[in-house]
Structures are given as structure tokens and as C-alpha cells.
Design a protein around this nucleic acid. Structure first.
Length: 263
DNA sequence: ATGGTTGCAACGCAA
């Protein structure tokens, strides 16, 4: 109907192998019923993607995969179009990016490099990757006013996003250059939906498999949904669904969900 | 306390 609002529910989840986590994804889709689910670390080739199971669940899939590592996919109820798998001017064989258009919304699903440690070459690769992303997003915002950038950013933006900021200070995922890179992304014209709606909430999206980190709630908020300013005004809910992290043989990440009241 | 756990794939690498 004319003028009627409809909820557009998007989610992001680093599944750490879709081969292992397919039952988790199917179960979560059935209960959460998002319009879109962006997956990271599917760790498989497109040829091995479980298209049939995803279709039977009521979703279509756009996939950018590779063998063994990385790999991203976007599941959606509506078909997606205008797929993009690479950031211009970033020569990267690692499959970490998937842009799609769904209805009036442009989505960019990201698996930002982990960085390993602040002393490593992978850390330099991470920072360069984020710089190139920044330049890319400036142009994407001009093309797509309704833009959502979501995924595993491998950055906890602030102290409130870390269970023990003192211990994590200067470490990868929470170092100053990474946090500055995250702020630079926001400065391009995005809002961190979770933090926008819950300024004081301590809620994490990732817990290390080691040291019983989940049971002790030793987590970090490193998975994010960023919305362009026009869209952020329409964001009505954003939350982290911790429940799948407590399931049998879980991913080390939990899904982050955001709901937008599209016109 | 420089540990520990998981996935992939092959006895190491990446997270």
C-alpha cells in the first residue's frame, strides 16, 4: 500500500566454515527470518556452495568463494543484482567483499582482514585494505544513498566494545590505528547502527574459542552494521543475537541484526 | 601463563 512502511531486516554472521555451520544457518534463518543474511568465512568454493539447501529455506544466494579460507555470501529473500566482488585499486585475491543491490538498498558485505598482530605484515595489509575501502566507500555513497556496509570488521571501535580494555589496549582488533581506521569509515558518512541505538550497552559479537571465553563473556564487538545517514534515520532496531554462540559446535561469532523501516 | 581451540587439510597455517 502507498506510504506503508515495511520492515527490512538485515543480519551479518561470520560462520567460520559454512560446511560445518550450515545446520546453524538454516536453523537461525527459520527462527530469525531476516530479509538478508550476509555471511563471512564460508571457506569454500562457489562450486561447493549449498545452493539447494538455501533455496529450500526460501533464500537466494550471491557467493564469492575460495578454497580453504575467507569467502563471503549474501542470502536474500528477494533476488540480488549488480554483484561486485572486488574493491577497485585493491589487488586482492582473497575473497572478502560482496556488493549487491536488493530492492532500493545497496549492501556491501565485508570480511575485513584479521591482521594477526600489530607487528605482522598482515597488519599492514589490513590497514592498507581499510584505506582502499575508505576511498571506495566515498564514491559508493554518491552512487547509492541507501547503503549498508556490514560484516566482520575485525575492529572493536571503543573501550565499551571490549570486555577488558586494559588488557586489549594496543592489541590487534583494538589498536589505535585500527580504531582510527574505523572512525575514518564512519566519517565518510555512516552510522554504527548498534551504537547509535544503544549508546551504553556492552554486548559482544565474538568470543575466542580458547579459555572458555564465551562462558566468561570475554568478548569483543567486532561485527557491525553501518548505515548511510539517510538509512540510519530509518534504523529502528539493532541487536546481537548471542544464542547461536551457545549452540553445539558454534561459530566463534554471533549474528548482528538490524531492522530498517523502509518506505 | 606467549598458553588455549577450531577448521582445513595435511602434520602447518589462519583466526
Amino acid at each position: 500500500m502507498m506510504g506503508m512502511m515495511s520492515a527490512f531486516k538485515v543480519a551479518t554472521w561470520n560462520v567460520n566454515s559454512l560446511r560445518v555451520r550450515l545446520p546453524h544457518v538454516l536453523s537461525w534463518l527459520a527462527s530469525a527470518k531476516p530479509d538478508v543474511l550476509a555471511l563471512q568465512e564460508i571457506k569454500m568454493l562457489e562450486a561447493d556452495f549449498p545452493y539447494d539447501a538455501i533455496r529450500e529455506a526460501g533464500y537466494v544466494a550471491a557467493v564469492s568463494g575460495q578454497k580453504t579460507y575467507n569467502g563471503v555470501a549474501v542470502l536474500s529473500r528477494q533476488a540480488s543484482s549488480d554483484l561486485l566482488t572486488d574493491i577497485p585499486d585493491l589487488d586482492d585475491h582473497q575473497r572478502r567483499v560482496l556488493g549487491v543491490t536488493i530492492g532500493s538498498v545497496r549492501l556491501l558485505n565485508l570480511y575485513v582482514p584479521n591482521g594477526e598482530s600489530v607487528e605482522s605484515e598482515k597488519f599492514k595489509y589490513k590497514l592498507n585494505w581499510l584505506t582502499k575501502l575508505d576511498l571506495f566507500l566515498k564514491n559508493e555513497l554518491k552512487k547509492y544513498p541507501q547503503l549498508i556496509v556490514l560484516g566482520d570488521f575485525n575492529i572493536a571501535p571503543a573501550e565499551i566494545d571490549v570486555h577488558d580494555p586494559k588488557r586489549w589496549e594496543g592489541q590487534v582488533l583494538f589498536s589505535t590505528p585500527e580504531r582510527q581506521a574505523f572512525q575514518a569509515l564512519l566519517q565518510v558518512g555512516f552510522s554504527d547502527c548498534f551504537r547509535q541505538l544503544s549508546p551504553d550497552e556492552k554486548s559482544y559479537s565474538w568470543w575466542d574459542y580458547r579459555m572458555n571465553a564465551y562462558k566468561r563473556n570475554m568478548g569483543l564487538r567486532i561485527d557491525h552494521v553501518l548505515a548511510s545517514k539517510p538509512l540510519s534515520l530509518l534504523c529502528e532496531q539493532c541487536y546481537i543475537d548471542q544464542s547461536p554462540r551457545s549452540w553445539e559446535r558454534p561459530s566463534d561469532h554471533a549474528p548482528v541484526v538490524a531492522e530498517f523501516a523502509l518506505r
